[in-house]
Each structure stands twice: as C-alpha cells, then as structure tokens.
Simulated assay, not measured.
Amino acid sequence: MAGSRVAHATLKGPSVVKELCIGMALALAAGSLWKMHHWNEQRKVRQFYDLLEKGEISVVVQEE
C-alpha cells in the first residue's frame, strides 16, 4: 500500500482578474440601463414643455 496516490481537489482562491472583469461588465450594464432610463425621462419632459409652449396642452384647469 505504499505509494498509492489519490487525486484531491485543490481549492483555489478567487481570481482577481476574473472578479474585476465581472464587476466591470455588471457596472457597464447597470450604468447603461440607468442612462437609458434618464434619457427616456428627459425626452418625456422635453416633449411636455414643447407641447406646453405650442399651446396644445395647458396646466391650468378650465372652468366650466
């Protein structure tokens, strides 16, 4: 029984480069979604003020 070798799984620590790449990818994805949300809100506000300036809408309640 001398010299028998058993393959053991070696545990490795976290890969710093892999963690940085995953973190950057997630940050870019989240940042892109956030920026798209703000562009959409900005478009809505700009459209509202354009309609208000043209007189197509009003913020004053009309009396009957």
Rank of each mutant, 00 (worst) to 15 (best):
G3A: 07
G3T: 00
S4W: 04
S4Q: 09
S4V: 11
S4I: 11
S4Y: 02
R5L: 12
R5T: 04
R5C: 05
A7M: 11
A7V: 15
A7P: 02
A9C: 06
A9R: 10
A9Y: 11
A9H: 10
T10M: 14
T10Y: 09
L11M: 08
G13I: 13
P14N: 12
P14V: 01
S15L: 03
S15W: 01
S15R: 02
V16S: 03
V16T: 14
V17R: 13
E19K: 12
E19W: 02
E19H: 03
L20E: 03
L20G: 02
C21S: 12
C21P: 00
I22E: 06
I22Y: 03
G23D: 03
G23Q: 08
M24E: 12
A25M: 12
A25G: 00
A25R: 14
L26R: 14
L26D: 09
A27M: 11
L28F: 10
L28R: 04
A29Y: 03
A30P: 00
G31V: 03
G31D: 05
S32D: 06
L33N: 08
L33V: 15
L33Y: 07
L33C: 11
K35A: 15
K35Y: 08
K35V: 15
K35H: 10
M36E: 12
M36C: 13
H37L: 10
H37K: 11
H37E: 11
H37A: 07
H38D: 07
H38Y: 09
H38R: 08
W39R: 05
W39A: 06
N40T: 13
E41P: 00
E41T: 14
E41F: 05
Q42W: 05
Q42V: 11
R43T: 15
K44M: 08
V45N: 01
R46K: 10
R46I: 13
F48P: 00
F48E: 02
F48R: 14
Y49D: 06
D50N: 10
D50R: 15
L51E: 12
L51G: 06
L52H: 08
L52C: 06
L52W: 08
L52S: 07
L52Y: 13
L52R: 09
K54I: 00
G55C: 01
G55T: 04
G55I: 02
E56N: 07
I57V: 15
I57A: 06
S58I: 06
S58N: 09
